[in-house]
């Protein structure tokens, strides 16, 4: 399984719409098999979604994302975990442990409003 993490300066990129780099993490049996940085070329929502599909991504972890981007990516069968903030390595580690729903990884202000969305957002 491959997860993509929108990255900026070793933290989760604040807004996926303008993200330029993602880390593709290849996970096998709950262990990171491979990690690589990829420059996202496309800007338009549909093209971005297609690019993620071409990279074989199953899950996207990102910061804020506007509805149109999220819809396009979901339409391609990719699960989206939005409004995540924090250090990239810690986010990957927590995702593997199924603990990404920890408050520490929520974007500021995403408290009560996002609690429902975060339920079960581990692996």
């Amino acid at each position: 399984m491959k997860i993509a993490l929108a990255v900026w300066k070793n933290r989760v990129s604040p807004v996926f719409d303008s993200t330029r780099v993602v880390i593709i993490v290849d996970i096998e049996n709950g262990i990171v098999n491979d990690k690589c940085y990829v420059h996202i070329q496309a800007h338009m929502p549909h093209n971005r979604a297609v690019e993620l599909v071409e990279l074989g991504v199953n899950v996207l972890i990102c910061g804020a994302i506007s509805r149109v981007y999220e819809d396009m990516i979901k339409m391609q069968g990719i699960k989206v975990i939005p409004f995540i903030a924090g250090d990239v390595n810690q986010v990957i580690e927590s995702y593997l442990k199924g603990k990404l729903n920890n408050r520490n990884f929520r974007m500021p202000g995403c408290g009560n409003k996002c609690r429902k969305r975060f339920r079960g957002e581990g692996r």
Binding site: W8, R11, S18, M107
Partner: peptide, 23 residues
């Protein structure tokens, strides 16, 4: 939509979340 308590001390890009932040 972010309260002052939550915003203070946090990275501005994660609070403001603008498309300009990165670039």
């Amino acid at each position: 939509g972010v309260s002052r308590e939550e915003a203070i001390g946090k990275q501005c890009c994660e609070v403001f979340r603008s498309n300009m932040c990165e670039m």
